[in-house]
Simulated scan of single mutants.
Amino acid sequence: MLLEKELFARSENQCELCRSTDTLSIYEVPPETQINADTTILLCKACIDQVDKKEQLDPSHWRNLSETMWSPFAPVQVVAWRMLSRLRNESWASDSLDILYLDEETLDWAKKTGDHEQEGTVDFHQDSNGMRLVEGDTVVLIKTLDVKGSSINAKLGTVVKNIHLVHDNTEQIEGKVEGQTIVILTKYLRKG
């Protein structure tokens, strides 16, 4: 509870990156394992979802980084640098990144996750119509599929409940057909 009070006081009851006052939470800046004011920041839900790649980056949401990147607090600087790096294709973000100075220790911390090397887009599991799929969804096959290594033939219109997303491949999900767990390509299904 003391940490939360300290962060709310430090941030003046605002998200430390975008300055929103909506739904603020403590965010532990990876890969740090100690939880204290030197390793955490106060973020709004929109920032957390985009930082953690649960939602696509919205460049307009991050415009305040040009100001908040000058925070005297290292965890704020680290996340600001990472987000500016992911947004580097935006001219304003590239300009901000060019003038942002981090001391050597803070820059090393910022680079530890490798997040700065990735582009800003996030891949999600999507069905054949481009609808986003989430863990536990129900889907319908849009094509009859022969299941390799099995005598099962998954017919057009088969309903697959409670799907599991294959985390390292956004083009695949797992689901049960005729009691057997199979891997299905997302291009052959639609959200039910």
Rank of each mutant, 00 (worst) to 15 (best):
T113H: 07
L84F: 09
I99A: 12
R63Q: 13
D103S: 10
T144N: 00
Q56V: 01
N89H: 14
K111D: 03
V139R: 05
P59Y: 06
T113V: 10
S85Y: 06
C47K: 02
H61W: 13
E90Y: 06
D98K: 15
K111V: 05
V79Y: 03
L145T: 08
Q126S: 06
K53D: 08
N64D: 05
V78Y: 02
G130W: 04
A110Q: 06
K111W: 02
W81Q: 04
K54D: 00
W62E: 01
D49A: 07
V140N: 09
A93E: 04
L102K: 07
S60H: 07
D123L: 14
D137N: 14
S60D: 13
L107I: 12
Q50A: 03
D137S: 14
V76K: 07
E117F: 01
T106W: 03
V78H: 05
D58S: 11
D95S: 11
V139H: 04
L133W: 06
Q126C: 12
T138S: 15
S71V: 01
E67P: 00
T106E: 00
V51M: 05
G114F: 06
Q77Y: 09
P75Y: 04
F73A: 08
I99W: 09
S60T: 13
V139K: 03
K54S: 01
N129E: 15
E90N: 12
W81L: 05
G136E: 07
S85F: 01
D127V: 10
E67A: 11
P75N: 09
V122Y: 05
S60V: 13
L145S: 06
L100F: 00
E67R: 15
R63S: 01
N64P: 01
D49R: 11
E135D: 15
V139S: 01
L65K: 06
R88V: 12
A110D: 05
S85A: 15
L84I: 08
I48D: 09
Q126T: 14
D95H: 02
Q118R: 14
H116W: 12
T144Y: 05
D52K: 13
E55G: 00
M131Y: 08
P75T: 11
A93C: 05
P75Q: 02
L57Y: 08
L141Q: 03
F73M: 02
S128P: 00
K111L: 15
L84N: 06
D58H: 10
R82F: 04
T144V: 01
R86H: 00
E90L: 04
L84T: 01
G136F: 01
G136N: 15
M83I: 15
S128M: 10
E55A: 14
D49W: 02
N64L: 12
Q118N: 13
E90I: 08
P72F: 00
K111Q: 14
M83C: 03
Q118K: 15
L65G: 03
E117C: 05
L87D: 08
